[in-house]
Amino acid sequence: MSVLEVSDLTFGYGDRPVLEGVSLTVEPGAFLGLVGPNGSGKTTLLELLIGLRRPDSGSVRLFGSPAHEFADGERVGYVAQDDAGAGDSMSVTVAEAVRMGRYPRRLRGRFTDDDRRAVDDALERVGIADLAERRVGRLSGGQRQRVFIARALAAEADLLALDEPTVGVDAESRTAFYDLLDSLNDEGLTVVLVEHDIGVVTARATEIACLNRRLYFHGDPETFVETDALAEAYGTDRRVVSHGH
């Protein structure tokens, strides 16, 4: 079964169309990089993929069921940009944040040995076990993004969705972060990454979707760099803008 099946997806905010006729399929174990110019609908597509929004028309199937009705929350891990609004001022520790990964399975009641083991393993896997008692809000951007990866691992998620996770993270931590994503993907975790840095995506992803309202390209990175999908996607954007003025 495919992880994601998107067919003829259309979505808009009010009268403003954001996505038109997008179709794509993501198989288990894929590392999909979503690229496109600013305002091209990347983030909106990601939100539709994990069921945070409902399509205007067309469909998004997540593990075989409509994404906006998808009930097995623990199968999807989500990592946003590191602006961490509320989380920053809260006194939540790294351990507490990673424990949240178990919440979809255990909304109340005591944590079992399995829950605790999953949390410990996740902390260990992303290399933040020594930070467990630190406050999430006091960590560097790179460390904080590892916490959110650990939360998804604690959930034993099958799909990791990331929205420009390394904006504002220093170059060294970025490389380490993407190395981690790579090795998690090698272990079988399906990854969907929204990223503005095309270099990162072509180097790391196993497939690329290039988006600007419509889907301009979906295929492997080698083909992507040979076609002019990128120029077309970005070029159209410029033409639309110049028409608007």
Binding site: E74, V76, V92, M100, Y103, R108
Partner: peptide, 22 residues
């Protein structure tokens, strides 16, 4: 006490909580 976990998750990271099906 009963709703502690979903309340905490939604306060800490609302989008991730929604993605996690809460």
């Amino acid at each position: 006490a009963l709703a502690y976990r979903p309340l905490l998750y939604a306060t800490f990271d609302e989008t991730a909580a929604r993605a996690a099906g809460i």
